[in-house]
Design a protein around this nucleic acid. Structure first.
Lengths: 250, 250
DNA sequence: GAATAAATATCGGTC
DNA sequence: GACCGATGTTTATTC
């Protein structure tokens, strides 16, 4: 493990080290006083200040200040980093295409530069996602409702694949939409599109007042909880909400 | 400007410096070999590997690998960082409440530690946002359509505030929904909710076949472009699309 | 490449 | 604190 670390380097020293680090595919961090400008989907300018610039070998670039989880400016992976000294000052430019975007960092002072090789150790084991919720329901369909019978996951429809498709105790088709956390109105809209698509596919009238219909396509939203507005929209459309967490409570 | 930088420190040396840096409110970066575990809204585990840990004085914590714009693990601002040496190894724990979440980083090797004071220089001047699009339309309403007359922005309704409310050449109420970029069907749903709310408020029948109505609430979606499915839903509901960028083309 | 939906989304404003 | 909507959202997956 060879970590390079320069303290208060000159701009030229920083450039030499940067070019070597690009060559090695190192993860690079530069802390210094700089201005930042971005142009692409939007455009932004950031005046002089102390920031941390992170340059990744996959092309990602991040400019961090002392606040926030989000970088104040960035460039996504796949971008190309270049460095140069202009008028005695280090300048780092990261560009990408489609969309065409450019991030430019101009340093007036370089306090610290580090470069370090990083490989592997990237495989995160994450649980508690929507997929865990689906697994949970397939293993215990009664958590949705008694005698619910899942038939298919990712069932295709003209509105896209529905999370879970099944049949209830009375033989009605049921569209289940899964959300791992509290949801707003948009999730109800998503569910409504699937239900509408399935009704059309099965030739079932949308009019719920039509009590003659022996078969009704039902919509069920499975989520830990719903917002008030989402609850209204669920009620409007005659859908059900099942309160369920992606993983069992302790 | 005092930047502290330790190269291959002992775990105890790193701890001392960390505690001082917490005290000073420094921006801290630690590069080293570590494992990471997270528990909260979801849960995850990350095996041993070289990573960069960024600790911000506002409580944000970021674990970065050599890939991706996103940190592989993180903690949002407002969290509390603590450090300790257990069994000779540095351990950094960041916790927050509501929701209760904990991020734990256990180091086996510390390659590099830096701490630097950062203040100010955080005010980003961003243009090309939805607000720019609204400004543009208010200055040139004809970009929406000839003789369109904006009356109100953020006009309240039972479905929430609508972006722009106005009147067309024939005196019809117009609800304008703004999007800074290409949109999908959800934006049409959002517009539909506002239109429905306004129709109810004004006591206007939704049935468009009712040609007797002298006043019709119209819906206009202003966005650079729309997806095919969004276009279908716009047509279904009789809404219009105006192709417009948040900032003028060069 | 376009479209669609998930995410430990984050972030800001409002009530 | 809950809720709602924007974001240069990013990211993954599918078509």
């Amino acid at each position: 493990m060879t970590v390079t670390s320069l303290h208060d380097p000159t701009h030229r020293e920083a450039l030499w080290e940067l070019e070597d680090a690009f060559e090695r595919g190192d993860l690079i961090s530069i802390f210094g006083r700089c201005t930042v400008s971005y142009e692409g989907r939007a455009a932004s300018d950031l005046g002089t200040g102390d920031r941390l610039l992170l340059l990744k070998p996959d092309g990602a670039a991040l400019v961090h200040t002392d606040e926030g989880r989000q970088p104040v400016n960035w460039q996504p992976p796949g971008s190309e980093h270049r460095a140069a000294v202009r008028e005695g000052r280090l300048r780092v430019v990261s560009t990408r295409t489609n969309p065409a975007e450019t991030l430019t960092v101009r340093f007036s002072d370089i306090h610290q530069l580090s470069a370090m090789p990083v490989t592997g150790g990237r495989d995160l084991d994450l649980h508690g996602s929507e997929e865990d919720l689906r697994t949970r329901i397939l293993e215990r369909p009664d958590l949705v409702e008694p005698d619910f019978e899942p038939r298919e996951t990712e069932r295709p429809s003209s509105a896209g694949p529905m999370d879970v498709f099944g049949v209830d105790a009375d033989g009605n088709p049921v569209v289940v939409e899964l959300k791992r956390r509290r949801v707003g109105p948009d999730a109800v809209g998503q569910l409504a599109r699937y239900v509408r698509a399935l009704r059309e596919e099965l030739g079932i009238e949308e009019d719920r007042a039509d009590a003659d219909a022996t078969v009704e396509v039902r919509g069920v939203l499975v989520a830990p909880s719903v917002t008030d507005r989402a609850a209204e929209r669920l009620a409007d459309r005659g859908f059900d909400h099942v309160a369920l967490e992606p993983t069992p409570e302790e």
